[in-house]
Amino acid sequence: MLRVLAWWAALTAAWLLTTSTVDIAEFVAAAIAAVPCAVIVPFAGRALGGIEKPRVSWLRWFTHIPLAVTTETVRALRTRETGHFETLRLPADRVAARQAVATVAIGLSPGAMVADVPPGGRTVVVHRLLSGESAVLDRIRR
């Protein structure tokens, strides 16, 4: 029951973080919509045969995002590059969880987006708008 309650709170908070104004109507809508999703989580975990848990150390990937957003936005506004695809090879540790967290981290930077996550593999296909190094991608590779 605590797990369902925790998911309900997290999902309600996620909804409220994406709204422009938080009022009682938004809170009620968020709280109601989060209930079925939170109830389904334990069943989904069992159906998937258990869920790999991300490592706490992966949160360090997100520390590079504020600087990357600033620098990549400026570079993207000045470039005429059309971009390119790059296959990001991941370490073999907790591959599915690593792919999921990497997808979120990469999606937060304006210079790259995840184009594909091949099932059962250790890779993430990234479309990079900008050439050169990426602090976010470099941290994820490690």
Rank of each mutant, 00 (worst) to 15 (best):
87 T>V: 12
91 P>M: 01
79 T>W: 08
75 R>S: 11
81 E>P: 01
47 A>E: 13
48 L>F: 14
92 A>G: 08
61 W>V: 06
80 R>D: 10
61 W>Y: 12
60 R>Q: 08
64 H>R: 14
63 T>W: 13
71 T>Q: 13
78 R>Y: 05
39 V>N: 06
73 T>L: 08
52 E>L: 04
39 V>Q: 08
42 P>Y: 00
70 T>V: 15
42 P>V: 01
92 A>M: 01
51 I>G: 03
63 T>F: 11
40 I>E: 12
50 G>V: 08
73 T>A: 09
39 V>C: 10
81 E>Y: 00
62 F>W: 10
44 A>S: 14
70 T>A: 13
64 H>V: 11
74 V>G: 07
92 A>S: 11
72 E>Q: 12
86 E>V: 05
94 R>T: 01
78 R>G: 03
66 P>T: 10
54 P>S: 03
60 R>N: 10
81 E>N: 06
82 T>E: 14
54 P>Q: 04
48 L>G: 10
94 R>Q: 03
85 F>I: 11
79 T>D: 07
52 E>C: 03
68 A>G: 08
48 L>C: 12
41 V>Q: 06
49 G>Q: 07
54 P>E: 01
59 L>A: 11
53 K>P: 02
45 G>T: 07
91 P>K: 01
79 T>Y: 05
68 A>M: 08
74 V>H: 13
62 F>K: 06
52 E>D: 08
72 E>I: 02
41 V>H: 03
87 T>S: 06
49 G>H: 07
83 G>L: 04
87 T>E: 09
93 D>I: 02
51 I>S: 05
78 R>K: 12
62 F>M: 09
61 W>T: 02
78 R>L: 13
67 L>R: 15
67 L>I: 11
40 I>R: 15
